[in-house]
């Protein structure tokens, strides 16, 4: 039964933003392995106590998938209850057009890495009848500010729809689309939301909605103001 026992949970991009907020929420009850681009030394002290960390740079999708599998084995896990493929970058388009470099980087990190990681993690997830969670974005329906980012998230949406059917009865697959959160993704992307930022949800609240959506295994789920105002951060299943 979900919520009754400690789960082995992998969170990519778990050293910052929503990934870290989710990790902090789950750290007390579950066993966590987080991944990120930064080195062990750089993240030391910032992660929740007890969580493992593996370096997996998503800008090389194939290597990142191998790094995760190796990291899980070295951590002593022989199965995986949850994989939350959350790592992602955004690069604001300059004058309306993404550069070739930005397009390639965004697709590699946000989409291709998740696809190859899902493939590599399949045996571990299958063994534990686990859940694969892909973190999309409300931008998956299109955005003129961040076209390549929107495209990468739309790709995750279509990927989840297909894979959820393919892996039915073996591994649950879902895609979650969080709304904008008060993380540093906008600053990193070179985009200033200005006063709009006041309307962004707190990372903790999004993380709470992510946790209950993961427990429910439903797909797709949009985690934004509508859900929040319906009590999404306080009610729902517990992971």
């Amino acid at each position: 039964m979900i919520g009754a026992r400690s789960r082995r949970i992998l969170i990519t991009g778990g050293n910052a933003g929503l990934g870290l907020a989710l990790a902090k929420k789950l750290a007390r009850r579950h066993s966590l392995l987080l991944s990120g681009r930064k080195s062990q030394n750089e993240v030391a002290g910032t992660l929740p106590p007890g969580a493992g960390y593996v370096v997996a740079d998503q800008s090389d999708p194939e290597k990142s998938a191998l790094a995760l599998v190796r990291g899980i084995r070295d951590f002593g896990w022989d199965g995986l209850d949850n994989a939350v493929l959350n790592a992602g970058i955004g690069i604001a388009a300059v004058d309306g057009v993404d550069s070739a470099e930005a397009i390639r980087q965004t697709l590699d990190v946000n989409l291709l890495a998740a696809i190859l990681q899902a493939r590599a993690l399949f045996p571990l997830l299958k063994k534990s009848s686990g859940t694969l969670t892909l973190i999309g974005s409300v931008a998956h329906k299109g955005s003129a500010t961040i076209p390549a980012y929107a495209a990468s998230k739309a790709g995750l949406h279509g990927f989840a729809r297909a894979l959820r059917s393919e892996w039915k009865g073996q591994v649950a697959v879902q895609v979650l689309h969080p709304g904008p959160a008060k993380t540093d993704i906008h600053e990193k992307a070179g985009y200033d939301p200005g006063r709009m930022r006041a309307l962004f949800l707190a990372p903790d609240d999004i993380a709470a909605m992510m946790a209950s959506a993961i427990a429910s295994r439903r797909s797709p789920a949009t985690l934004s103001w509508v859900r929040y105002l319906n009590g999404g951060a306080f009610t729902g299943r517990r992971l």
Binding site: G142, P147, G155, E166
Partner: peptide
């Protein structure tokens, strides 16, 4: 396939959905 799930061609479905949304995002520009 943009209008359905496409089991048996998951990465293809992802690739075409991404392209459709890129086009939609670029329309105004």
């Amino acid at each position: 396939s943009h209008f359905t799930g496409y089991p048996g061609a998951a990465s293809y479905a992802a690739s075409k959905d991404a392209l459709a949304i890129y086009a939609r995002s670029m329309r105004k520009y």
